[in-house]
Amino acid sequence: MAEKASESSNSISLNTVDGKIFKVSPTIANQMQTIQSLIKAYDSSRVISLPHVNAFHLSKIIEYLEGKSATTVSAVKEFEAQFMKDLSLKQLKGLLIAVGYLKVNELLELMPKTVAKLIENKSVEFLRKFFGIVNDFTPSEEAKIREEIAWAFDGVDED
């Protein structure tokens, strides 16, 4: 989780919600669309505050972007697999939120695949919990929906 300090004078300083300052190169910063637009809006010498991102998630995103750019095609695949494997379910969720907020396109391509694999064949309750969904159906409404899409429940033992 070491801060990646770039020697380059045009490096960009990012301040996470838990008060850590990260210095990143413009190449890394530009791969986060949200930061890219913030750079344009800010005076370049200022530290950019990220009220929605903590140090752990930002360090992971930087680790990914650096790891990915440094290697060959097959090595990238291996790196990506290991990168995702090392994350707990909770960390994965948090990272997904940060990646969605910062609009890191590279990870927005990869992470849905990882998440989909994880939630496949899981119960309705698991999915509600995972995605923080409040069930706003009344029991009769939910029963009606289930009836309407009974054709998609063939061969499934519902929980």
Partner: peptide, 24 residues
């Protein structure tokens, strides 16, 4: 510190298009 802070976003704030990428 791995937790999203109280001021942070929740998973339910995820943009629909990301959720739909997962569903697809």
């Amino acid at each position: 510190m791995e937790e999203q802070s109280k001021r942070g976003l929740r998973i339910s704030d995820l943009n629909d298009y990301i959720v739909q990428d997962i569903i697809s």
